[in-house]
Design a protein around this nucleic acid. Sequence first.
DNA 1: CCGTAAATTTCGCCA
DNA 2: TGGCGAAGTTTACGG
Lengths: 248, 248
Amino acid sequence: MDLAVALERIKQAILKREVIVIVGLCEVFYEGRASSILGPGERIAIIKSDYSVLIHRPSGYEPSNWQPPDSKIDLKIKDNTLVLEARRVNPSEILTVIFHEVYQILSWKLLDEADFSMYATEEDMKKAILFNPSIIEEGFQPFEQERKLKPSGFVDILGVDSSGRLTVVEIKRRKATVEDINQLVQYANSVEREFGVRPRAIIVAPGVQRSAVRAMHINSIEFRCLTPKKSAEILRKKAGLDRYAGLE
Amino acid sequence: MDLAVALERIKQAILKREVIVIVGLCEVFYEGRASSILGPGERIAIIKSDYSVLIHRPSGYEPSNWQPPDSKIDLKIKDNTLVLEARRVNPSEILTVIFHEVYQILSWKLLDEADFSMYATEEDMKKAILFNPSIIEEGFQPFEQERKLKPSGFVDILGVDSSGRLTVVEIKRRKATVEDINQLVQYANSVEREFGVRPRAIIVAPGVQRSAVRAMHINSIEFRCLTPKKSAEILRKKAGLDRYAGLE
DNA sequence: CCGTAAATTTCGCCA
DNA sequence: TGGCGAAGTTTACGG
């Protein structure tokens, strides 16, 4: 495909706020927070309506190179190549794609206003515990969420157990790591400094990594098993009850 | 575009190990480690040669949904829609894309064997320090890298200073956070338990977040400023010297 | 704009 | 295969 024609085609599509797919033989250079060089190869470049740029190789989930939304896009012909530059400031970064050949250019005005809903997140686990605190243990009463701690950090849930003892709850949607345990210990320390009493500290997660079990026991951290999926089920049941209540 | 034709076109392209781009109006469902629902909208689906699948909305750097390489891809016509399923085991996950309309299907056999080279990584920072330890301080002598610690974690560089004192070095390519400081404190504790002496602990990074400065001073962590870019320059100079030595 | 933490994080290394 | 940590992580949510 003639590069001058390609350039004009891309410029028009950008003006029309279309999503553009460019297929061709290119080299890619990136300079910014890091630097990278990718030698010649056949790839797909995507310029989205929000001026984000993606370079995808024929394999792999991740783009080899990219520029996030609102990058400044420049196009030019140089030395019989089509040069695509996408710049960003703060951090100052530049992505340069040099097309030696362009096989095809496609563009579409795409309309996509749909909501994206995600379930079984850590947030859902927290909601499930707040809806049914006995997941932690019988008599547990949450009284605060996302409490900011003195030096830094946030407690997921702060509450009291059936005997009135202050309890710190940390939630993870994946197996708890030694880092997670250390973090919870820090949080418990902060809470102790602030409240003047040593709180119970409970990690809620689908499991605990083997290497974290030691740290858990040493620091008297307790564990409750809860998966994101189970939490989502609890919330679905709650939603059903709410709807039923609404129909009465 | 006729959906039966679209289906046949995609199947053929998969057999030929081509990279496929499908543009159309679709809904997307994901069920696995989490769940998500994305209502109808116009998007680009990409099936790569390695059987990874990406769903890209008209904006944003990240795909709204995806399946990593080696997913099992199934296609069928159902209720006047084209259904694309990409399954994965371990973790068990399924991505379902329901196309109500397919505007265009494109596919190419792409050849891309080029090496991807990244510079100014944390690894480069470590190499720069090992090449020129005076970056840490005059007389610093590294004697081990990536030393495994007892409960968990790795020390980037272990060495001795000019007075022979054991020194732990942690490297970060970005401003050090309070989490990074805590991690280094844990590492220093581990090293102290193992060697029986309290080591110096130095964080090497382009800077320290304001909130982390307190934690740094409290824990007697020292700071040396080094950027990934500066490290890459040092390594380039070294490469130049090596080449020069080779020519002599 | 900084700080903090989640993410279907992915990816690569190494035991 | 699982653990471990980096990443140009990105993104979202506060203050």
